[in-house]
Amino acid sequence: MPGNPVDVFTGGVKLTVEARQALIERFGLDAPLWEQFWRYIINAFQGDFGLSFYYFPKPVWDAMMEALPWTLLVILSSLILQVIIGYFLGATAAWKVGTKTDSILQTFSLAIFSAPLFWVAMILLYVFGFQLDWFPLSGCFTAGATYSSPLEYIADIMKHAALPIIALTIAQYASYQLILRNTMVGVLKEQYILTAEAKGLSESRIKYRHAARNALLPMITFLGVSFAVSIGGSVFIETVFSYPGIGKLIYDSVLCRDYPLLQGCFFMFSLVVLVVNFVVDIAYMYLDPRIRY
């Protein structure tokens, strides 16, 4: 870490020797390094990540807990949309594999996927926020507003979350489409699809309830990875939209060299990713009757 943490904390203000020593003791910086690390881990598991430099004396934990729900709102909503869009587009592409529809869908989605997330966010903000004024420009709800009903509150929140969710969805849905399509092309060659057709079922029923349903599993596995990627993406989204989630917290802490906050957020991210992966494993078990522990 560049520079003594105390100096960073004080922003370079000159301190008296005693004051400096007091600070060092306060932060436990006089203990050997390994002990500091160990204490950090133990505290972390108790939810104590220390105090933020920038928001001093607010504990890092509090800052993170305030921001986390907003990030989760955006990411989870977006993931649901991504899966749905990817499901329908992927199934259509696979059903019409080899035809123009398939090529167009593939190419289009690949192209969109190549655009940098933060730029997509910027464009959306510019067009729909600044120029058309359809959506608010920052924040997660209108500051200082009073609401006559919980419904109004929810509506306000959704209006603020809309652009971030849309941006994230546009940037990332393509993977789901690709995965489903590729898996489903294999599924369509299976005997039970022939049986389904012989049973006189309608095309859409075969496409979605027989073929796509069997191709679903790799998509679900991908949810774990996708979540981790989205978390990375949230840094950009929240920065562009000035949305007070964990991503923005990370960004701010980088700008201000708020190391405790940065570390805390990073720790939190890894933890959340692990939890989500665990949930995904459970969901997988539920969806594939062949795997039941």
């Binding site: 978390i231 990375g232 840094v235 990370i250 802490s253 980088v254 060299r257 940065l262 570390q263 890894s270």
Partner: peptide, 17 residues
């Protein structure tokens, strides 16, 4: 592989300048 890529890069870049 298990660590989230972007946050890790951001943290490291923050330290390295």
């Amino acid at each position: 592989l298990i660590l989230p890529r972007f946050p890790l890069m951001i943290v490291m870049a923050a330290y390295l300048g």
